[in-house]
C-alpha cells in the first residue's frame, strides 16, 4: 500500500464523516424548524380564534344597534322604529 492510496482512503473516510455530520446537523435543524412551525401554527390558530370571537361580538344585533346610535348616522338598525333620522333632524333644526 503506497502513500497515495492511504491518503485516498483517509480523504474518503473524512468526506463520509463530514457528510454524516452535515446530514445530522441538517436533520436537527429541520426538526427544530418543524417544532417552531408547529408552535407558530398553534399560535396562529389561537389568534384566529380570538379574532373570530371579537368579530362575532361586533356582529351581534345588539352591538350593531349600539353602534348605529353612537355614530348618529342616518342608518336605521334592522326592525328599528323609523322616525326622522338624526341627520335630517339636525338639518331641520338649522335656521
Amino acid at each position: 500500500m503506497n502513500v497515495g492510496r492511504v491518503g485516498f482512503v483517509i480523504a474518503a473516510l473524512t468526506a463520509i464523516a463530514l457528510a454524516v455530520v452535515h446530514l445530522r446537523t441538517e436533520r436537527t435543524r429541520c426538526a427544530a424548524r418543524t417544532v417552531t412551525l408547529e408552535s407558530e401554527w398553534i399560535q396562529l390558530r389561537r389568534e384566529l380564534w380570538v379574532l373570530q370571537t371579537r368579530t362575532a361580538r361586533l356582529r351581534t344585533p345588539q352591538r350593531l344597534r349600539d353602534r348605529v346610535v353612537s355614530l348618529t348616522t342616518d342608518l336605521v338598525a334592522p326592525a328599528a322604529e323609523i322616525e326622522s333620522p338624526p341627520a335630517a333632524r339636525l338639518a331641520s333644526d338649522r335656521p
Binding site: R45, R46, W49, V50, Q52, T53, T55, A56, R59
Partner: peptide
C-alpha cells in the same frame, strides 16, 4: 381540537371556541 361553531340563520356566529 376545536369544537364546531354554531351559526344563526344569517351566518352570525352564536357559539365558538377560544383558547
Amino acid at each position: 381540537a376545536r369544537r364546531g361553531m354554531i351559526f344563526d340563520a344569517r351566518g352570525r356566529v352564536v357559539a365558538l371556541d377560544r383558547q
